[in-house]
Write a protein that binds this DNA or RNA. Structure first.
Length: 337
DNA sequence: GAGACGTGGAC
DNA sequence: TGTCCAAGTCT
C-alpha cells in the first residue's frame, strides 16, 4: 500500500472514482491496456457524462465512440445495462454483487472492481495481474484452479482498504511484476516472494516453449564479374524476405551442397563459372536454422551474350546491398574475398 | 472449461 | 516475424 501511494499512476478514473466512471473504465480496460484506453475514455466521458446520457443515446452512436477499441459487445452491453439501471435502479448503479453481475457485460471481475473501487466494499478482483502476482508470491509453478485465486485475493484485502488495495495489486502487476522480465529489485514485496526466493520469477508463468527449429541446408552463389555481383529475383525459399537476393538453392537432406551449387551455376551462366571452395554461414529465421554454404566464383570471362538466365541481374556492389533485404545474404556478402 | 471476441504493444 | 498478452465476458 505504501508502494502504491508513492507509485500509482494518475488516471482519470482514479482522480474522480464515481461509480459510473469506475464502471466505464473497468469495461474499457477489459483485455485492453491503460495507454490504449485513455483517449477513448476521455472522449466517451465528454459525450456520455452520466448514465442517463448513455441510456438515451442510440446504439450506433455509442458504437461510434467505441470504434477502434475492439470487443464491440462491450459497447452494446454498457448501453443495455444503462437502460436497465435507468428503469430498475432509478438511474444509480446497484451496490450488491448479485445485482451487478446480472447486468450485461459485468462479470465477477467487474462487479468486484466496482464494489471495491467505487464503494470500498471488501470484494476481491482477479485479473491477469492478480493471477500472476498470486502465482509468483506463492511459488505456484502449475496454475491452480480459478476458485483458489478468488479465495486468496479475498483473504488478502486489508480491513477497510479494499479500494486502494485492489488497485495496488493490479498496479504492481502492471508496473513491476510484469509477465516478461519482472522488475524484482524494485518490488516492494520481494522479501516475501516465493518465486523470487527460488529463482522462479522467470518460469512463472511457464515460458512459451517454442517449437524446435527446422534445420535447412542452403547453397548460395557469390558470383562476381568486373566488380559486379549477380543477384536473383527468384527466391530460394518462401521464408527468405525480399525481392532480390543472392542466387541460392535449398539442399536436400542427404544432398551435396557442392553439386547443388554447380547445377545452379550451370543453369544461370551456362557453365562459364565453376564455383568451389565454400565457406559456411549460419542464420536463423523464425523456426528455422539455416546452414548455408557460400560458393564464390569469378566470371572474369564474360558469359556469352544472353546466357545469363532470366530473373538474374548484375549489380554494382553498393546497388546490390541496397536491393538485398535479407540479412542472410548480407552476411554472405560480408565474407567476400 | 474451451472458444470467440479486436486491437495494439512488447519482445 | 510470430506470439503472447492486456484491469474479461458470454455462450
Amino acid at each position: 500500500m505504501r508502494w502504491y501511494a508513492r507509485n500509482r499512476r494518475t488516471l482519470p478514473w482514479r482522480e474522480d472514482p464515481s461509480p459510473y466512471r469506475v464502471w466505464i473504465s473497468e469495461i474499457m480496460l477489459q483485455q485492453t491496456q491503460v495507454r490504449t484506453v485513455l483517449p477513448y475514455y476521455e472522449r466517451f466521458m465528454r459525450r456520455f457524462p452520466d448514465i442517463r446520457s448513455l441510456a438515451s443515446a442510440a446504439e450506433s452512436e455509442v458504437l461510434a465512440h467505441w470504434a477502434g477499441l475492439g470487443y464491440y459487445a462491450r459497447a452494446r452491453n454498457i448501453r443495455r445495462a444503462a437502460l436497465v439501471i435507468e428503469d430498475r435502479y432509478s438511474g444509480d448503479l446497484p451496490q450488491t454483487y448479485e445485482e451487478l453481475v446480472s447486468l450485461p457485460g459485468i462479470g465477477a471481475y467487474t462487479a468486484g472492481a466496482i464494489l471495491s473501487i467505487a464503494f470500498n466494499q471488501p470484494f476481491p478482483v482477479v485479473d491477469g495481474n492478480v493471477r500472476r502476482l498470486i502465482r509468483r508470491l506463492q511459488g505456484m509453478r502449475t496454475p491452480p484452479g480459478e476458485k483458489l485465486f478468488w479465495e486468496i485475493a479475498a483473504a488478502w484485502i486489508p480491513k477497510g482498504r479494499a479500494a486502494d488495495f485492489n488497485q495496488a495489486v493490479m498496479e504492481l502487476g502492471a508496473l513491476i511484476c510484469t509477465p516478461a522480465r519482472p522488475r524484482c529489485p524494485s518490488c516492494p514485496v520481494q522479501a516475501i516472494c516465493e518465486a523470487r526466493r527460488r529463482c522462479w520469477e522467470c518460469s512463472i508463468p511457464e515460458p512459451r516453449r517454442r517449437q524446435p527449429a527446422e534445420g535447412i541446408g542452403l547453397a548460395i552463389l557469390l558470383l562476381e564479374r568486373n566488380g559486379r555481383i549477380l543477384l536473383s529475383s527468384t527466391p530460394a525459399a518462401d521464408f527468405i524476405p525480399g525481392m532480390w537476393g543472392l542466387p541460392a538453392i535449398q539442399v536436400e537432406d542427404q544432398g551435396s551442397a557442392e553439386e547443388a551449387a554447380q547445377d545452379l551455376a550451370r543453369r544461370i551462366t551456362g557453365g562459364s563459372a565453376m564455383p568451389a571452395d565454400p565457406f559456411m554461414i549460419r542464420h536463423a529465421i523464425t523456426h528455422r536454422r539455416i546452414v548455408a554454404a557460400v560458393f564464390r566464383a569469378d566470371c572474369t570471362e564474360a558469359p556469352g551474350k544472353g546466357t545469363t538466365a532470366r530473373g538474374y541481374r548484375w549489380f554494382e556492389r553498393t546497388d546490390a546491398l541496397r536491393h538485398i533485404t535479407s540479412s542472410l545474404y548480407r552476411k554472405a556478402l560480408r565474407y567476400r574475398r
